[in-house]
Amino acid sequence: MKNFTLICLAFVSIQLSIYAQVLPTDTPETIDTEIWNGFSWDSAFFTTITFNANCLPTVALFEQYDDSSNSYNNLRRDTQVYDTNSNPVTSLVEVWDVATSAWINEEQTITTITNNEIVSELTQIWDLSSSTWINASRDDYTHNSQSQVAVVTTLEWDTDNDMFVNVLRKTYTYFPNGLVDTILDEDYDTNTSGWVNSIRATYTYNGSDLVSELLSESWSGTEWAPLAINNFTYDSNDSITELLLSNWNATSMSYEASQRTSYTNNLLGQPTEILLEVNISGVWFNASRNFQTFPNCQTLSIEKDDKIEFEIFPNPFANTINLKVSEPIVFQLMEVFDLTGKTVFKTSANLRSLDLGHLEAGTYILVLQTATEKTTFKIVKQ
């Protein structure tokens, strides 16, 4: 049960991480996780995320369901701190100690940022005997001329020699439009003091520049061999509806479906239900499912302005989107981005109606900036 618990927490944490990188408003506010017992769904975990004024996740509370008490009990708490530019600088993982009814430090990550670029991430674990933080690992980042991550080198702490030693290196390549092309994983060989190929991930995109296929290959020592393939399916609004994982079968020399994740989305393209299934001998079986709710970041982002009523309508929209504000606000910059980060609309005019009829159908990010505030919304073009 402990291993499954860690897997579930890792699944939720990965989801939060991915959401945060894409768009802060896509980080769920609550996640209700259930596990299939072979006959029915059982309650398993409940995750509650709180947000700051910029709608960035600050605390994630993981609770585990207890059958005996028919209630959720504390399990783990993740806390994230940001700098003034909304860059993550420190994160803390705590676990609940039932004996003392208190949170106990487990792990912390300290991020060093220069010119809004991550330079390194130092991970430390808490030593109960000495009540101090002990080095565990460090990720060092280098960037290309476009400020994209080029190489991430992972080093682990060698307690015998009191130093960090190379373990893993990830090298990123990009297409001219800025999308990731490949990610190469290399392991450090202490015998040769050099890097050895391990895993290679290759990305393929559809016409909307969304990932349609992710191919993973492993290094055999002389050539790249098939390992697994992920296929992504989207609806007409570019919201993901299915992720299919197929593993390579060396006996049949073909890919065999092993795991399927289905997404049910709301009108904003946010996944409100995520169903995970596993394939056993050609038959799909339920594994787990998440029910998710999302914060109203329109309210969160303006709380410090006496909760001014702010409305964007219609959303989804056909050609024009309107802004309604209860009090006078001057927007110094109004921008719309597609999901790749490309600017598709920009104006410094203080408008209350935006003509976006030139955009193709899909999901976009609207950013409104005043002299003191920057507010982000997801909008959908029909």
Rank of each mutant, 00 (worst) to 15 (best):
S218A: 06
Q332N: 15
L92R: 08
I134Q: 11
T154P: 03
N54I: 07
A10T: 14
W96Q: 07
V119T: 10
W195R: 02
T171S: 07
S91H: 11
V336K: 00
G282R: 00
Q292D: 11
L267I: 15
S145Y: 08
A99F: 15
Q382N: 12
S68W: 10
S193D: 14
S218Q: 04
T190I: 11
T347W: 05
S288V: 03
Q146D: 14
L155E: 08
A225D: 15
L356E: 00
T190P: 00
Y205G: 04
Y203M: 08
R260S: 02
G362M: 01
A250Y: 09
F45N: 01
P328E: 13
Y72F: 14
S198A: 14
Q270A: 04
D140A: 15
S91D: 05
K378D: 04
D338A: 10
S131T: 10
F291S: 09
T192V: 11
L92Y: 03
S145G: 09
R289E: 07
L168G: 04
A371N: 13
T261V: 11
I302V: 12
V211G: 02
P314N: 05
T159V: 12
W96P: 00
G341P: 02
Y141M: 04
P316A: 11
S262G: 12
K342G: 04
W157N: 07
F291Y: 12
Y65L: 06
T25Y: 03
Y172F: 15
I312A: 05
T241K: 04
D26T: 13
D189H: 05
S68E: 08
E156N: 15
R260G: 00
S281H: 02
P314I: 14
G282N: 01
V211T: 10
F285H: 13
V165T: 15
D42G: 10
V283R: 00
S262D: 08
T171V: 12
D67T: 07
A225I: 15
D162R: 03
S147H: 15
L184Y: 02
E29D: 09
F45K: 01
